[in-house]
Amino acid sequence: MTAFATAPKLKLAVFKFASCDGCQLQLLNLEHELLPLAGRIEIAHFLEASSRVEPGPYDLSLVEGSVATPADAARIRRIREESKVLVSIGACATAGGIQALRNRADVEDWKQRVYPHPEWLSVLPTSTPIADHVKVDHELHGCPINPLQVRRVLLRALLGTTPDLPSGSVCHECKRAGRVCVLVARGAPCLGPVTRAGCGALCPSLARDCYGCFGPLDDPNPPSLAGRLAELGLGPRDVERRFRGITGYAPAFRALADRIAEERSAEETGGSADD
């Protein structure tokens, strides 16, 4: 008998907001590790794994998805109240997700164009990260999240400590893995230098450039990298697109992309005025 085995089980809940379920799936992808964990964790609310639902409060809540409807906005507040520790998981929950593309558009207009009965829809004009609505204790980034990081969050929660997640760039992981840099050796427009570590440098390990799915690292420098991408031959539109991906609504990426967009439109109007 170990000292920890006698401790009460950690009551875990997993909730879904506007998202594709892929991050919750990473939890299930822990497969053979779930069995020993099952003795230490009580899965109290995890609809993707079990239809049995226990009421709160929960020791640890993992929240996937972004807040996209008025009902979401109310529900996340209830979940926060019921959760000792709340961890948002994935690009949707931490940065608004790909659905945050609508944050730059007129949602009313899109509704009219796409749906036969737009009046049946109740949506917010924006898709926003969980932390915009409630206090979040930790964030797990990525699209999807890395199962090893979920594992770390669970095991650290069992010990009552913080998960201690990386704050630096994907380049750290890329170099530790002994990869040859695709930006330097091939001129590929890699976002690794401004993207948060955590994926294990998955894309560069497959000889392709990082597209930033973990979002910006703490204190990134997107303008300098954007300058380098331009030197590598990307036009302003391509650079803007590069930063408007899955985590494009994250403030550091958004600020850069918005600035490029502004400069482009200023140039275009300037150009037509000259004509």
Partner: peptide, 23 residues
């Protein structure tokens, strides 16, 4: 430290760090 799944201990891991990392 990486705790073991069954709570029986942990492994201590060392990895390259960098003075460029904010942490």
């Amino acid at each position: 430290d990486e705790p073991a799944l069954d709570g029986s201990g942990a492994v201590r891991v060392r990895e390259w760090d960098s003075c460029f990392d904010r942490d």
